[in-house]
Design a protein around this nucleic acid. Structure first.
Lengths: 210, 210, 210, 210
DNA sequence: GTGTAATCGAGACGGTACGTCGAGTCTTGTG
DNA sequence: CACAAGACTCGACGTACCGTCTCGATTACAC
C-alpha cells in the first residue's frame, strides 16, 4: 500500500487543543514560501536557498518563515515532499521480481535525473549527518515511504517462490538503491536505464559463474 | 599496483620551467594549513571549516590560503587525501573473490566509520555536483585511486574462472561501494561488518533461488 | 540668519510616508556609532576611522553602519557636524566690521587648532574632490552653514557705510577663510590670533600705501 | 632667486663615500617608477597610486620601490616635483605690483586647474599633517620654492614705494595663495582668472571705502 | 461590539564569514 | 650590491546570510 501521507513537518501540528484563538495561519503565505523554496532549490540547489531570498520572493517576512520552519533544510524537505508525494505511490506487481524492480526503479531514475536533484539530496543527507532531529525528519518523510513502497515486492517474490524467505529485503534494497544513489551523488559514471537493468540483473543472478 | 600518488591539488604545480624565481612557497605554512583544515574537518565537518578559522589556527593569513586553494572544499580534499593516501594501497589477493572483497571492504568500513567522515564526504559530493572543476578534482584524487585499487580483484577472479569475463567490474563496484556509501550517507541502518558480509554474499550469489 | 540645522546625512530620511513600518531605527546604535567615529576621528584622523574599529567600539555590526552611511567619510561628516553644530550659530554684530570679523574668526581659529582637525578637514576635502555626491553633502552640511553665518557681516558693513556695496562678500570670505585654511592645512606658519588680526587688518586696508 | 633644484627625496643620496661598490642603481627603474606614479596620480589621484600598481606598470619589484621611497606620498612628491620643477622658475618683474602678482598667479591657476591636481594636493597635505618627516619633505620640495619665487615681488614693490616696508610678505602670500588654494581644495566656487583678478585687487586696495 | 491573542509585512539589529585588496616585509635566484 | 619575482602577515574592505527583535496592522474567536 502507498504511503499514507505523513504529516507536514515544521512546528508541531497546532491542532491539538480544541481552542483555536488568534489569527489563523495564512495558507497563502505557506504556499508562497514552499513555491519559492522549491523554485530556488531546483535551480540553484540548497546553497541558493536563503531565508532572505525566500522571504523576498514569497513577499513574506523572515519571521514568518522561522515561525514555521526551524531551518532551510526542513523547508527544503517540505518542498521536496510536496513535489514527490503525489508520484509512485503504488507498489508494482507484475508477477515477476525482475519486472517489479524495473517498474520501481526505472521511473525513479528518470525522475531523479530529470532535474538537478543530486545536489539537493546530497545537501540534505549532509545536513542529516550533523543534525539528529533533522535526520529523523528526513528519514520519516523521504526515506521510509520509499522503502515501504518497495518491501512488498520481495514478499511477493517469496510467495511466488522466486527467492528464498531468507533474503533480507533491507540488504536487497540497499544494493539496488545504493548503487543508484552512488551514481547519482558521485556521478563517476552515468545513471541511466541501462545501469538500472545491469544492477537488477546482477543483483538477481549474482556475479559467480554457475 | 597502487595509486602512484596523484599530484597535490590547489594551484597548478609551478615546477614547470626550470627557473624557480621569487620566494619559495613556505612548507611550514602549507603543513599548518592542512593540519588545521583536517582538524576542523573531522571535528565539525565541512561547515566548521572556515577560511577565517583555518587562518587563525594555522597562524597564516587568509590571503596565503586563497593563493593556493580556491575554496575550502578543495582544501578539504587535500587534507583528506593526506589523511588517506598512506592507507590501503595494495590490492588484496587472497586467491578467492569473496575473501578479496572482504579484505578490500572491511577495513574501509572500519576506517570510514571510525570518525565522522560521513558528513564530510557528503558535503564534498554535494559541492562536486555544483562545481564542475571541483568534481574533476575530487574524482581524480579520491574516487579513481580507490576504484583502480579494486578493479584487479575482478580480473583475478576471471582468471581463476570464478566469474565470467562478461561481468562489468564497474557495475560490481557500484553495487558494493554503493551499498556501503548508502548506509554511510543515509544512515537508515548500521554500516558494520555484518552488512559488508551480507552485500558481498548477495552480490556473489544473487537473490534468486537456485 | 544661519542655517537652522540641516537634515542628517546618510540614507535619505525615511520619514516620507506617514507609515512607519518595521522595527524602528535604534537611536542607541546611531549614537554609539557617531561617538565611536568622533573619538577615532579626533585621535587618529580619518585614516584611523575604520568600519571595523567603529563596529567594535560601538558594539554594533558593520552591516548596521553600512545601512546608514555609505562611507566612512560621510560618517565623519555626521560626527563632525554633531560636534560643531551647536557652536557659533549667531552672526556677530558689534557695530564694526573689524570687530565682527575678529569675533567671527578668532573663536573659529581657537576651536580648529584646539584639536587635530587639520588632517580631518584635509581628508574630507580630498574625498570631496573625488566624489561628487560626497562633495555636495560636505558643502551642504559643513561649508554653507558657516558662510551663511558670515555673509550678514558684510551686509551690515554696507549699511553702516564702512564698505562699498560693490564688494563681493564671497571674495572677501575666501580671502579671510582661505588664509586661515591655508595655514591650517599647509602649516608652513602658525595659525594663531596674531595671524587673524593681521589678515583682517590687511584685508580691510589693503597692501597699497596711501 | 629661485631655488635651483632641490635634491631628490627618498633615501639620502648614496654618493657620499668615494667607494661605489656593488651594482649601481638602475636609472631605468627609477624613471619607470616615476612615470608610472605620475600617470596614476594624475588619473586616479593618490588613492589610485598603490605600490602594487606602480610595480606592475613599471615592471619593477615592490622591494625596489621601497628601497628608494619610504611611502607612496613621498613618491608622489617626487613625481609632482619632476612635473613642476621646470615651470615658473623666474620671479615676474613687470614694474608694477599688480601686474607682478597677476603674472605670478594666473599661470599657476591655469596649470593647477588644467588637471585634477586638487585631490592630489589635498591628499599630500593631509598626509603631511600626520607625518612630521613627510611634512618637512613636502614643504622643502613644493612649498618653499614657490614662496621664495614670490617674495622678491614685495621687495620690489617696497623699493618702488608702492607698499610700505611694514607689510609682511608672508601674510600677503597667505592671503593670495590661501584664497586660491581654498577654491581649489574646497571648490565651493570656481577658481578662474576672474577670481585671481578679484583677490589681487582686493588685497591691494582693501575692503574699506576711502 | 469589544477585547484578546496569534498572525502577518516590514525591516533593523548583532554576528560570522566571505573573498579581495593594499601595505609592507622577506626570501629566493640572477646580473 | 641591485634587482625581478613573488610569497608572506596583517588588517580593512564591502557583501551576504544568519537568526532575532521590534513595530504597526490584520484577523480570527470569545465574551
Amino acid at each position: 500500500m502507498a504511503d499514507p501521507s505523513p504529516p507536514p513537518s515544521g512546528r508541531v501540528s497546532p491542532s491539538e487543543g480544541p481552542v483555536r484563538r488568534g489569527r489563523p495561519r495564512s495558507e497563502k503565505a505557506r504556499t508562497a514560501i514552499l513555491a519559492a523554496a522549491e523554485d530556488l532549490l531546483l535551480n540553484g540547489g540548497l546553497e541558493a536557498v536563503s531565508m532572505d531570498a525566500i522571504a523576498e520572493r514569497a513577499s513574506v517576512s523572515k519571521a514568518t518563515i522561522y515561525r514555521w520552519w526551524p531551518a532551510k533544510e526542513t523547508l527544503a524537505v517540505d518542498a521536496l515532499y510536496a513535489d514527490w508525494s503525489g508520484s509512485y505511490t503504488a507498489t508494482p506487481d507484475t508477477g515477476s521480481l525482475r519486472e517489479d524492480l524495473l517498474a520501481l526503479l526505472v521511473p525513479w531514475v528518470e525522475r531523479v535525473t530529470s532535474r538537478p536533484y543530486a545536489r539537493v539530496i546530497g545537501a540534505l543527507l549532509t545536513k542529516a549527518r550533523s543534525d539528529e532531529k533533522f535526520a529523523e525528519e528526513y528519514e520519516r518523510r523521504l526515506v521510509q515511504p520509499r522503502r515501504a513502497l518497495a518491501r512488498p515486492i520481495f514478499a511477493h517474490a517469496v510467495e511466488r517462490g522466486e527467492i528464498s524467505s531468507e533474503i533480507d529485503p533491507e540488504v536487497a534494497l540497499d544494493l539496488l538503491y545504493g548503487s543508484l544513489y552512488f551514481r547519482l551523488l558521485q556521478a563517476h559514471l552515468p545513471l541511466d536505464e541501462a545501469f538500472v537493468v545491469a544492477i537488477v540483473e546482477t543483483t538477481l543472478s549474482g556475479l559467480l559463474a554457475r
